[in-house]
Structures are given as C-alpha cells and as structure tokens.
C-alpha cells in the first residue's frame, strides 16, 4: 500500500478522475496528513494507472510565463494550441481563439514548453500535441494535422521524426 499526499483543492477533480479505482481510501485526518492536504491510500498495483492522472492534474495546473510586448504574461500551458513564428514575431494561439504576440525566440519557447507535450513541427511552428484531432498522412511523407478547432497544420518532412518521438513511435536519439 502507498499513501499519496495531495492538495485538498484538487479533491473534487481527483475523485472524478479516480472513480474507476474502487479500493482507494481518501483521508484528511490531521494526524495523518498536513493541513489543507488529503491522503490517498492505494494498492501499489494502481500506481501505473494513477501516475499519468496525477501528472495530468499537475500539467493542467501548470502555468508558464512568457514575455509579451506589454511585459510578462502568465498562462496555462493546456490552453495553448500552437505557436507560430512570422519573422521575429511569435504568435501564441490559445484555445479561446485569441492570439498573443510573444517577445521571445522560438527555440526558448520550445525548451520551455517541451515538458508540456509541445513539439516542434516545422521551422515556424510549435504544437500542443493534445490539441490534435486527426492526422492525415501525405504522399510526400509530410503529415497534415487537424486540430480540435479545425485549424490545419503541416508537419514538414524534417520534423516528422521528432513528432514520432513525441508520440512515442520512436525513441529519442541521444
């Protein structure tokens, strides 16, 4: 058995996501967990299943700081659809269909967003993989991506490999 200590604010979200796991015990006994925290007592066999769920909650709660022309701006990583470069200008397209001009080089943003399932799909594009609805394969080894808002982006040939790595189809070369 293992005990996972988590912030009490996420209890509702946690219960919803963990409803499929029957033998889980949730406790907020002050003698067992710190204040404002809850403890999840689970069988070890559920660890592989619960791990991505917890990671997902962390990711959804993750905010990143980007530099705009008006100063720094904080945004949830999960709300970003993709980033697009026009010369020196970088546009950040959000799920609410708004865009922000970013004053930061694309390679920095790639490094910044890498842990949040973002991948470079072209010289000018960084994409949130979790926003892809459908992948069409092209005759020329390119990939045509349809996002959940209907936007169509292309994975150029030289970026297919990192895209495969991001989807787990290929191991990253050291």
């Amino acid at each position: 058995m293992s005990k996972i200590v988590w912030h009490k604010d996420d209890l509702t979200s946690l219960k919803d996501k963990l409803k499929d796991i029957a033998d889980i015990v949730i406790t907020d006994d002050p003698s067992e967990v710190p204040h404002e925290m809850v403890g999840l007592v689970i069988d070890d066999k559920h660890i592989p299943k619960i791990k991505p769920i917890l990671e997902r909650i962390v990711l959804e709660k993750s905010r990143i700081m980007v530099q705009t022309k008006d100063g720094f701006m904080q945004t949830y990583a999960k709300d970003i659809m993709y980033l697009e470069a026009f010369g020196d200008d970088i546009y950040m397209h959000l799920e609410d269909e708004s865009s922000q001009l970013i004053k930061q080089p694309l390679y920095q943003l790639e490094t910044l967003l890498g842990p949040y399932h973002f991948v470079r799909i072209g010289k000018s594009f960084i994409l949130n993989i979790m926003k892809i609805k459908f992948i069409r394969s092209g005759l020329n080894a390119k990939l045509d991506l349809e996002l959940i808002d209907g936007t169509r982006l292309e994975v150029t040939r030289s970026f297919v490999k990192p895209f495969k790595v991001a989807l787990g189809l290929q191991k990253k070369e050291d």
Binding site: K17, P52, E55, R56, I129, G168
Partner: peptide, 8 residues
C-alpha cells in the same frame, strides 16, 4: 494511445 497514456 498517446492521449490515453496521458490520461486524456
């Protein structure tokens, strides 16, 4: 599969 692996 990728979606599912990431609990989405």
């Amino acid at each position: 599969t990728h979606y599912k692996n990431n609990a989405m």
